[in-house]
């Protein structure tokens, strides 16, 4: 479905991505893990058209995404929930969701999409008329994901959805990701919470200093010594962050 090859990205003089190749198949949940600055967010940003690639190719269902603007890429079926959520703080929950459906024109579909959103995110029904900026962090995260789903993406990219949330909310978000996956949404997930990610992902890429250091199933990565040391501690529960 999505195929990234030899991707290279620079911010001014700094090379953020040296050489990234990865692929995501239909219906998969693929995760990118790695320390801060490894290039996870940059990879997602490059796919979403927010940063420009210096080199390499990005193909989605046989179409190249290189040089395409974020709005075009969304219309091609890739939605991104960026790091730190980026909901519109001065808009109501309703308006946030309506904007999520901007690329779709069918009004009756919008109604049924809303109903579906409310079953997945009951809290948003309660907060429907509230200003986005007044929501709690967890609610904002749900709103951000719900908003992206309104566009009916074929591929959903989630950047650090559990960042800064209380442990119970983290559980909630991971449950939600599992639900989305079981409904057939293809997901590319960036997470720092490696332990939890290993539980739910089909495949993972370990990024380091702008390169793919390792690729494989959760079992393959778990057995890797570096992952054990750096991310999982010595079998210590909850030792998931760097």
């Amino acid at each position: 479905m999505l195929q990234v090859e030899n991707l290279q990205v620079r911010y001014g003089a700094i090379t953020a991505l040296r050489d990234i190749s990865l692929k995501v198949e239909e219906g998969e949940l693929v995760a990118l893990i790695g320390v801060n600055g490894a290039g996870k967010t940059t990879t997602i940003s490059a796919i979403a058209g927010i940063v420009k690639a210096v080199n390499g190719s990005i193909n989605f269902r046989g179409h190249s995404l290189i040089g395409k603007s974020p709005e075009v890429i969304l219309r091609m079926g890739i939605a991104v929930v960026p790091e730190r959520r980026h909901i519109f703080p001065s808009l109501t929950v309703e308006e946030n969701l309506r904007l999520g459906a901007f690329s779709r024109h069918n009004r009756s579909e919008y109604r049924s999409d809303l109903d579906e959103t409310f079953t997945l995110f009951p809290i948003l029904k309660e907060r429907f008329r509230q200003i986005g900026g007044t929501l709690s962090g967890g609610e904002q995260q749900q709103l951000a994901i719900a908003r992206s789903l309104m566009a009916h993406p074929q591929l959903l990219m989630l950047d650090e959805p559990s960042l800064g949330l209380a442990p119970t909310l983290v559980d909630q978000i991971f449950t939600l990701i599992i639900t989305l996956r079981s409904r057939g949404t293809t997901i590319l997930l960036v997470e720092q919470n490696v332990e939890r990610t290993l539980e739910i992902a089909d495949r993972l890429y370990l990024l380091n200093t702008g390169r793919v250091e390792m690729e494989g199933s959760p079992e393959q990565l778990k057995s890797h010594a570096a992952i054990k040391d750096v991310y999982l501690g010595e079998g210590k529960a909850g030792g998931n962050q760097l």
């Binding site: 709005e71 969304l74 939605a79 991104v80 519109f88 001065s90 808009l91 904007l99 690329s103």
Partner: peptide, 15 residues
């Protein structure tokens, strides 16, 4: 109004 809040994000929603 959304664009005034966060222009980049507005584009990422297809606007």
């Amino acid at each position: 109004r959304a664009a005034a809040d966060d222009f980049q994000m507005t584009r990422m929603l297809g606007v």
